[in-house]
């Protein structure tokens, strides 16, 4: 474990908690893409199947359980409990355009052709684009609540911190995983324009408004 990965995991955990609190406290999921949340549930389900096969540490197991449970809880809140507040008119990104290519790519480019490894690779590819429906929703509505932008900032920072973790592990532990690194780069780059808007606007107390 290193400080970059620890901060990354905590940033990820913070994002998930902020989102759950936003939906629970405001009893509304307006401005949140349910499709991205479904994609995250798929990502963690396909990545954390090794929960039943390999034990790495209490921390690893605990965090994986939190991420999976929180993903499904968010989907439940959005599509069942607070269904009436779900913005399905704007949340129109086609998930299959992300899931199917990720699955095909995972079958073509992976480290070994086993079920667990292909599912892990699929989860890595899918996670790198899973935020697209959310960013698409924000661009369609042209704005985002500040709590939603804090959620996105924490979520985008987590994988950016993981990039630093991989640099550290390359020098300190002399290994690297190109699949995770390339996907992590794509994932972090997708947040760049949002990061710019967040830092130039939200941190100055303005609302996150996308240029029309």
């Amino acid at each position: 474990m290193n400080i970059f990965r620890l901060l990354g995991d905590l940033s990820h955990l913070l994002a998930i908690i902020v989102l759950l609190l936003k939906i629970w406290k405001t009893r509304s999921c307006a401005g949140i893409s349910g499709k991205s949340q479904i994609l995250f549930a798929i990502v963690y389900t396909s990545r954390y199947l090794d929960l039943v096969t390999t034990y790495i540490s209490a921390y690893n197991t605990f965090m994986k359980l939190i991420f999976v449970v929180a993903a499904y809880a968010t989907v439940y809140l959005m599509y069942i409990k607070f269904k009436a507040t779900y913005d399905h008119n704007h949340d129109t990104f086609r998930m299959e355009f992300l899931v199917i290519p990720s699955l095909i790519l995972a079958l073509l480019i992976n480290h070994e052709l086993t079920v667990l490894e292909v599912l892990w690779t699929f989860s890595i590819y899918l996670e790198s684009v899973a935020i697209l429906p959310q960013l698409f929703l924000v661009s369609k509505t042209g704005e985002a609540e500040s709590i939603t932008s804090h959620y996105l900032f924490a979520l985008g920072s987590y994988r950016g911190l993981y990039l630093l973790n991989w640099v550290y592990r390359y020098y300190a532990e002399d290994h690297y995983d190109l699949i995770a690194i390339v996907a992590g780069l794509v994932q972090t780059v997708l947040y760049c324009d949002f990061f710019y808007l967040y830092i130039t606007k939200v941190l100055k107390g303005k609302k996150l408004q996308l240029p029309a």
Binding site: H111, W120, N165, A180
Partner: peptide
């Protein structure tokens, strides 16, 4: 080789 990359990340 890839074998020595531990799958210990979240």
């Amino acid at each position: 080789s890839y074998k020595n990359v531990p799958k210990d990340e979240l």
